[in-house]
Amino acid sequence: MITIVSHDAGGAEILSNYVLQNKDDYQFVLEGPAVPIFSKLLGEIKIKTLEDTIRNTNLYLTGTSWQSEIEKLAILTAKKSHIKVVSFIDHWVNYKERFFFKDQLVLPDEIWVGDEDAYQLAKSIFPLDIVKLKSNPYFESLKSYFKNLKPGIPSSEGFNILFICENISDHAKKSFNDERYWGYTETDAIEYFFKNLEKLNIASGNYTFRPHPSDENGKYDWILDKYPNYPIQISNQVPLFEQIAKSDLVVGCESMALIVASLANKKVVSCIPPEGKTLGLPQSKIIELRSL
């Protein structure tokens, strides 16, 4: 029996698609954003506690989260019970921080990554023998989806801009006790984007801001008040890949969704302000607004 342990959205997208593509006996320890992601893809799921899974598990397969400690607890539980544990990293930034629990580095038996860039990065940080290169099941699913898109799905109602919001300040606050640890916040990035629209040659367009799963309701209502002359909507009620498919331009900071958009051959822009951190995404297709 394989036990899937997941909380944050990025890892949940990968692991839910892994389950869909790899038939086996599974049980699930899910919390937070992972619950609706798994349910939408796999249907009704019985969710168990970590303690309930110990006696009948021969492998734990986890994501990595900044919002929750559940994956780290799964690693500790597996190690204590002599059960193999594997963690699939879903991004290209903050690798070592993903495995700190109460100031101690807690590593699984194997770390899986889904592309060559992530593989080289992980090998430079972790013991070589535990890092494994695997196909990314989420990206494989998306490639298939975008490949089979019929012409005409993009909207004919004008130029459509999708802004992928990220909970940068909360992440930095929880991880480093400083919401400006990376030199900027999500608010800074959004304001920087609007101040530099001319660099992107956007004369007019429709703007959709997609909140992060960890964002509180109403967090981005200030955008509607500050920029009343722009046609703006705030929505994450439809799947990410559908919003991307209907967009002409996808903007964010360093969300995995920017990589998804590049897979869909969309124009992709990172709007990390000049005072912010170095862009952690490796894909060359992503344009940095501050470099224009």
Rank of each mutant, 00 (worst) to 15 (best):
L41T: 11
L197W: 08
I111E: 06
D215N: 12
D221W: 05
A261S: 10
F241E: 11
N94Q: 08
E179H: 09
V19P: 08
F159T: 02
Y192H: 07
T3A: 11
L59G: 10
Q21T: 13
S141M: 13
A9I: 11
D170A: 15
D129S: 14
L61R: 10
D8K: 07
N94D: 13
I164D: 05
L224K: 14
L73N: 05
S235Y: 06
Q283V: 15
N56H: 09
F163A: 12
P282I: 07
P151E: 13
Y192K: 02
W66G: 14
R290W: 06
A203H: 14
V106G: 07
S284C: 04
D129Y: 06
P33K: 01
Y220G: 03
E254Y: 10
K266Q: 06
D52Y: 00
S235R: 03
D25G: 01
S6V: 02
K123L: 07
K147L: 15
E13S: 05
G205Q: 07
R55M: 12
F209V: 06
S204N: 09
K46T: 14
S39F: 00
K23I: 06
D25K: 09
Y60D: 12
A245L: 04
E51Q: 14
A118G: 11
S291T: 14
S270T: 08
F100L: 07
F159R: 00
L59S: 10
K174I: 13
P273N: 04
P211D: 05
I47R: 09
L59T: 10
D188V: 00
D115P: 04
V238E: 15
L263N: 06
W112S: 02
R180L: 10
F163H: 12
F139P: 05
H171T: 08
A12R: 07
A261F: 10
K46W: 07
W112C: 00
S175Q: 03
S16W: 03
N229G: 08
G152R: 10
L128W: 11
L121R: 15
N201T: 11
N148L: 00
D248F: 00
S235G: 03
E275A: 12
G11A: 10
V106P: 03
S156T: 14
K79Y: 02
K40P: 04
F146K: 04
G10M: 02
W112L: 03
A189G: 02
Y230E: 13
K79W: 00
G218A: 06
G205H: 05
V251C: 01
E71Y: 00
D225F: 01
D129E: 15
I75H: 03
I45W: 01
K147Q: 14
S144D: 15
